[in-house]
């Protein structure tokens, strides 16, 4: 792809979760490190929606926070529109790049300052980046933004607690749009919302993408939502991407056993009575991940090689897959 807005290469983020120094010395406990993100790379093209999907603890939210700079990477590079934003220092040099990306959070009850009026919340990026000057002009702009996300300009005078969850998420989106960004990182933006409200927010996000030409990095655990919104999907397991590529390819012809397992686990609304493969086991602790391919303890296709050697991603059709079974061509047919 030539026109990548965000390039992520070999991104690593470790968290030190060691006991305090004194305990380590006295109780002889070792240092321990959570490999939340352990070497992932992908590109997001302009106007695309790239989704990261996986179970809790797979590191998808950490990737989102690394991209917007809430964490600094332990290793690896992040490039936004050709600008290096891999470290805090690089970000500080390129404040312009930071303005062009914004984030939408999961919890609509925690993501708005309860003591601020909605007008002030939405106006903050405008004031900070000095995009519009003069209080009256700012108020007009905030009114426009609120209307753009389906609220009314008069709602600006209210406090967050006067809104429902869905409306708060709209305020959150309005604040994200206030800095006129090109790129939005959405961390589970609808998982705290009811289904009917989720539909409203997803539709709104699609509408905004069309109108403003936004690019999304979308984080979710809900495969159906991901299928609905994304152009490309990456499936994460224990800090790594196991399979990524075009949405249709991943969902219609999944290759990685983990992707297949996730797809199999989705409750079936059509009730076609398809036999579900019972899913075994749970996600292991990222402090002490299994050797070789991290998925091998739960994988029906695991061999000795899977237990000892981590698979490298290989290109299969329009997708990338990191699995020995795919490489060795011993993958069973997908029931589709």
């Amino acid at each position: 792809m030539t026109d990548a807005l965000l390039k992520v290469d070999n991104l690593v983020r470790h968290f030190d979760v060691s006991p305090p120094w004194l305990n380590r010395v006295i109780e002889r406990r070792p240092k321990s490190v959570v490999k939340a993100v352990d070497g992932i790379g992908f590109e997001i093209g302009r106007g695309e929606t790239f989704s990261l999907v996986g179970e809790s603890g797979c590191g998808k939210s950490t990737v989102a926070r690394l991209v917007v700079g809430l964490y600094n990477p332990t290793a690896g590079t992040l490039e936004f529109d050709g600008i290096d934003i891999s470290s805090g220092a690089a970000r500080a040099r390129n404040r312009g790049a930071q303005r062009r990306m914004q984030m939408i959070f999961q919890d609509p009850y925690a993501s708005l300052n309860p003591r601020w009026r909605v007008t002030d919340i939405v106006a903050e990026p405008i004031r900070f980046n000095k995009l519009v000057s003069g209080d009256a002009a700012i108020r007009v702009r905030v009114g426009e933004l609120l209307e753009q996300v389906g609220l009314s300009a008069a709602d600006g005078e209210k406090y967050p607690h006067e809104f429902s969850g869905g409306q708060r998420q709209r305020v959150s989106i309005a604040r994200a749009l206030a800095g006129s960004p090109e790129f939005l990182v959405c961390d589970e933006p609808t998982s705290a919302l009811d289904v009917s409200v989720q539909a409203q927010i997803l539709n709104l996000m699609k509408k905004l993408q069309r109108e403003l030409g936004l690019t999304y990095l979308f984080i979710s655990h809900d495969l159906a939502v991901v299928y609905h919104v994304s152009t490309k999907v990456g499936v994460m397991y224990l800090g790594r991407l196991v399979e990524w590529g075009e949405t249709e390819v991943i969902f219609n012809a999944p290759r990685h056993p983990y992707t297949r397992m996730l797809l199999d686990a989705i409750p079936d609304l059509d009730m076609s009575g398809r036999a579900r493969t019972p899913v075994a086991g749970e996600v292991p602790s990222p402090i002490d991940p299994p050797s070789g391919c991290a998925f091998h303890p739960r994988c029906p296709l695991a061999t000795d090689r899977c237990r000892s050697e981590a698979p490298k991603p290989v290109s299969v059709g329009a997708a990338m897959v990191a699995c020995h079974a795919v490489e060795e061509n011993r993958l069973p047919e997908w029931h589709g």
Binding site: S164, G165, G166, Q167, D194, V195, S196, V197, A199, Q200, L202, N203, K206, D222, L223, A224, V225, Y227, H228, F251, L263, I266, L269, D270
Partner: peptide
């Protein structure tokens, strides 16, 4: 409810809450 398979541009939406 978004479903896998039947992909539409927009979901049916009930306005309001």
């Amino acid at each position: 409810i978004p479903t896998i398979g039947g992909r539409h541009e927009l979901l049916t939406q009930i306005d309001g809450s």
